[in-house]
Design a protein around this nucleic acid. Structure first.
Lengths: 199, 199
DNA sequence: TTTAAACATGAAACTTGATTCATGTTTCAA
DNA sequence: TTGAAACATGAATCAAGTTTCATGTTTAAA
């Protein structure tokens, strides 16, 4: 049993393929129309299976939604990790990570929406998603302070500030408005993040 | 007709009172259990009226929800405006506004949740809520730059950064965790907002 | 005082979907 | 090869929950 896999684990190749088709279909349906607007029938239709098949792999509509939230977390983290690997300066790593996040949000609007909506469908999954991010941020900031790369300060507050800031810039300039290049958003955001507002 | 009032406008004192009771009940029910988990019957029961009465004043469940979102916007803005009136320095006004926002979120968890959930129930209402806030922020930042109170920079990006940052700090330290005093959150957040991360 | 418009009622009509289940079909270890 | 476990089917079931409506009661302007 992989601890990261929710729902019933299939035992045959056919089963594995079917469950994967369901998850992919759910991602598209939940992502584009939302949890409540999307029906199980939409998911199974898109996956090309019968309604009953859904319940072989998932106990409920909510269960597959939860799986999608943690799936999103893993995808986001691995995408960003890959983009910033090898960068020595923490500030530069944050900057490239931020840019990667904006790009990821643009390319994965469905998953972005799923995470946001989990606040109202599966609050514990939502909290867990952000707990992992906040911990990672805080640890990185602590290390950066020790290395003298950034000023000392309350890194828990900073971590949540950076999360909120990234999330809303991602929503406004990544999802709603598409025209500003990720590079430009990143430069402007990091002028603020690095130097603050003071003259 | 007041342009800020949605739904059917009552013509008698009794009607005005009944509609107000419905709105207050909806605030509590939607706020504590969410849009989809709450039924019209919950709202009318709490308001002490019959189900049919609801439809005298609102065309649908969604309509009263929308009214609640704009209601929340007005309440938040007037609360903050009142707290920062008379402050000369824009940076200090932002700081006191931020603190007021954290306190407001703590005292109005229901309304906070309603605004968040509107992203999935009435996206246009959600966007409008933030558009108004973002415009106000941006205007204030522009004035502050002209007065030399803050550095020049991309104030639209800054405005959305501050919105995201406030929202997530409000969620994490205002709604989820209650122990940290608003003053302490504010000091830590503004050390970051004013000076940034650089050494 | 009237009386037409407003307001109020709550049971019933209607929709909408999630979930079940009785009945097959495939897979794959032995 | 075989048969027990896995997997698949989709119509039927069942539980919500929103909205309507036929029937009263109250309000307030004239």
């Amino acid at each position: 049993m992989q601890p990261t896999s929710e729902g019933k684990t299939p035992k045959t190749k056919r089963g594995i393929k079917t469950k994967a088709k369901l998850l992919e279909a759910a991602e598209i349906e939940f992502g584009s129309r939302g949890f409540h607007e999307c029906m199980i029938a939409d998911i199974t239709r898109r996956a090309g299976v019968a309604m009953g098949t859904f319940y072989i792999y998932y106990e409920s509509k909510e269960e597959i939604f939860r799986e999608l939230v943690s799936h999103m977390g893993r995808l986001t983290r691995s995408y960003i990790a890959q983009k910033i690997s090898g960068i020595e300066s923490r500030l530069e790593a944050e900057k490239q990570g931020f840019k990667a996040y904006i790009e990821f949000a643009r390319e994965n609007k469905n998953l972005y929406r799923i995470v946001m909506e989990s606040q109202f469908v599966a609050l514990d999954a939502f909290k867990e998603y952000y707990r992992v991010f906040a911990n990672a941020y805080e640890t990185n900031l602590n290390v950066a302070v020790e290395k003298g790369q950034i000023r000392a300060g309350n890194n828990e507050i900073r971590a949540w500030s950076l999360i909120g800031l990234s999330t809303y810039l991602g929503l406004k300039f990544g999802i709603w408005d598409e025209q500003m290049p990720a590079q430009e958003i990143t430069e402007a955001a990091f002028d603020f993040i690095e130097n603050g507002l003071k003259p």
